[in-house]
Structures are given as structure tokens and as C-alpha cells.
């Protein structure tokens, strides 16, 4: 018997549920943390910061695209329906967005220990959750990152929470990488549970 609720959910969010496409992004954050910590260093020909960013973006984009093609070959393709967002949701969205932007703009100005990077990643993940309320694991990661970014506000109470800004950023990048790996696995397994395991494409597409 078909689980029609799950069929609807997977169809609506098929492109978002292609979890493995996020693995390169998780590896990027892991590499970035390793680079900050001095565990790894880029080759000399990539010593220019912008070149490094460009090369990383290209590699992450290419790998993500290749993995999405694997999903397409295994499960097929759909054209998603345009989102019909109710007026009340739009209002709520703007309230949340404004609150986050205020936090992003002003908190680091008042408390320089607060991590802008962590807040930014948290906002992006939070907005992804807003478009897919059933995906609570995205919300949990967004809240974790927001908490990690904001916790230095409590610095005055019992001394500094992070020994330095570098340690704080490494922690945030490591949590982002681990979080991406976990949520990508959950999303991928949701797809596999509904569509079956990834296997080679059928002989033809009919």
C-alpha cells in the first residue's frame, strides 16, 4: 500500500532531499576548519586567498552537480510546482528575516566576540527550514549554530567561552560540516526509503 503523505512530501521536495549533493559542502567546511587550525595547507600555487575561494567554489559546485546527475539517473527528474506561500507566512517570513538581519548587523558590533559567519550560516539554514517545515533537523542545526555564534555574549560571566576568535570559528566550521553530513544523510535516507536504493538506471526510460 502506498504512503501517500510521504509520496507527496518527497515529490514536493525531491530536489531538496538529494542529500548527498551537500557532502562536498560539508567537506569544504571541514577543509576550511583544517586550514584555519593549521592541520592542512593549500599548495603554493593556491596561496592567493581569492584563487583559493574560486577553486573551492568550483570544486564544490562541480561535485554537487555531478551528484545531482547521479540522483537524476537513478530516480528520474521532476519539475517542481511553484511555491504558493500564504500571505500570513510571507509576513512571518519578513519578521524572522528582519530579526535575523538586526542580529547579524548589530550584535557583532556590540559584542565583537559574536561570530558573523556562524550567524550567516544559521540564517541560510533557517530559511531552508522555513520552506520545508517537516525538516526539523534543519531547524535544529540552525539553532545550534546560532547558539554557538551567540554564546560569547556570556563572556563576561565566567571568563571567555572561546580562547580566541580562531578557535570559535574553527568550532563553528566543524559543527557546520558535521551538521551538513548528518542532515544530508537524513534527507538521503528519506529519499531512499520512498524511492528504493540507488541503482543503475533502468534499461530505458520508456
Amino acid at each position: 500500500m502506498y504512503n501517500l503523505a510521504r509520496i507527496r512530501y518527497v515529490t514536493r521536495h525531491y530536489n531538496d532531499l538529494q542529500g548527498l549533493t551537500m557532502v562536498p559542502l560539508a567537506l569544504f567546511f571541514l577543509t576550511w576548519a583544517g586550514y584555519d587550525a593549521g592541520w592542512i595547507s593549500p599548495p603554493p600555487w593556491l596561496s592567493n586567498e581569492w584563487l583559493l575561494v574560486g577553486a573551492s567554489a568550483t570544486v564544490v559546485g562541480t561535485l554537487g552537480y555531478t551528484i545531482s546527475k547521479l540522483y537524476e539517473r537513478a530516480y528520474g527528474r521532476i519539475e517542481a510546482a511553484p511555491h504558493h506561500i500564504p500571505q500570513s507566512h510571507k509576513r512571518e517570513f519578513w519578521i524572522w528575516w528582519s530579526a535575523y538581519m538586526v542580529a547579524f548587523a548589530f550584535l557583532p558590533a556590540v559584542y565583537p566576540q559574536v561570530s558573523r559567519l556562524g550567524l550567516l550560516i544559521s540564517i541560510i539554514i533557517f530559511m531552508e527550514w522555513r520552506s520545508r517545515r517537516e525538516a526539523r533537523h534543519w531547524l535544529i542545526l540552525a539553532l545550534w549554530l546560532a547558539a554557538l555564534s551567540l554564546v560569547p555574549i556570556l563572556d563576561g560571566v565566567r571568563g571567555p567561552i572561546y580562547p580566541s576568535a580562531t578557535v570559535r570559528d574553527i568550532a563553528i566550521k566543524l559543527v557546520t560540516a558535521a551538521g551538513f553530513l548528518v542532515i544530508s544523510t537524513i534527507d538521503h535516507l528519506t529519499l531512499v526509503r520512498t524511492l528504493g536504493p540507488i541503482r543503475r538506471e533502468e534499461e530505458s526510460r520508456a
Binding site: I7, R8, R77, P82, E202, A206
Partner: peptide, 16 residues
């Protein structure tokens, strides 16, 4: 399935 998207290909419908 089709009511939840604009269109789907044969393979997707078959897998689902």
C-alpha cells in the same frame, strides 16, 4: 505525485 509537481518523468513515477 503529479498533483504535487508541475511534471515528472517516467523513471520518477516508476520508482515512486
Amino acid at each position: 505525485v503529479l498533483s504535487a509537481c508541475e511534471s515528472a518523468d517516467f523513471l520518477f513515477l516508476q520508482r515512486l
